[in-house]
Design a protein around this nucleic acid. Structure first.
Lengths: 103, 103
DNA sequence: TCATCATATCATTATATACTGATATACTAT
DNA sequence: ATAGTATATCAGTATATAATGATATGATGA
């Protein structure tokens, strides 16, 4: 059904969209409710929910209902580690990104 | 122009497409020519060239012309490290991916 | 039960991105 | 200079994905 490369591409796709990445960045500071993430990201509530559903189905975040709030959190430390590695890389490669428009 | 989140999303977008990831995986084994990557990935030559141009502009790969061949290689060890981290994560999260279709 | 708040889903539209085939450029050897 | 091979670019099309607004679901407390 899915080979290793497809799975990995799918994993990285979780980080490859500004909105989703904003959500993941927020969650690096700990569990957050949907409405908190609406606040921090500036996205609409349905949009946040959609991305969260995606991230959850891909296994990147965990969902926990507490009363009428729903808390989300990163499901694995390595998710944070990936973002940190990305931070380091960008510090060095940043110049190049300014011209990267294709695809 | 670009904030940190946009830059990082752009970085991960390099890994988020099956074709590009296939190219990057090939390059984990060392420098390769375009035609070698056409072989290993099964993509058409223009498609490989397009993705390479993208990866290069984003700073993920380096280009070196040698005679009529052009060799590409990963421009930083951390690119390989990112993929390796991804491999580990997938081993644990794989089940979830099978249902991930949205976005 | 009803009203309210938090979250999720749906249908639609807009946009971004990947792929293809044709063609152009660059290098090499004869 | 010409032919042959490797790579790059371009225009066009198809497809995938993100965002929106409207609405539905689920939980809580009066």
């Amino acid at each position: 059904m899915f080979n290793a490369t497809e799975l990995k591409a799918k994993l990285f796709r979780g980080f490859s969209d500004t909105s989703r990445l904003g959500i993941l960045e927020t969650l690096r500071d700990g569990p957050r409710t949907v409405s908190e993430m609406v606040e921090t990201t500036g996205l609409t509530q349905p949009n946040v929910s959609n991305h969260l559903a995606c991230l959850r189905e891909c296994g990147l975040v965990r969902r926990e209902q507490k009363g009428k709030f729903v808390y989300y959190e990163l499901s694995d430390e390595r998710i944070s580690a990936l973002m940190e590695l990305g931070d380091g890389l960008i510090a060095d490669l940043a110049k190049g990104f300014y011209e990267c428009t294709r695809y």
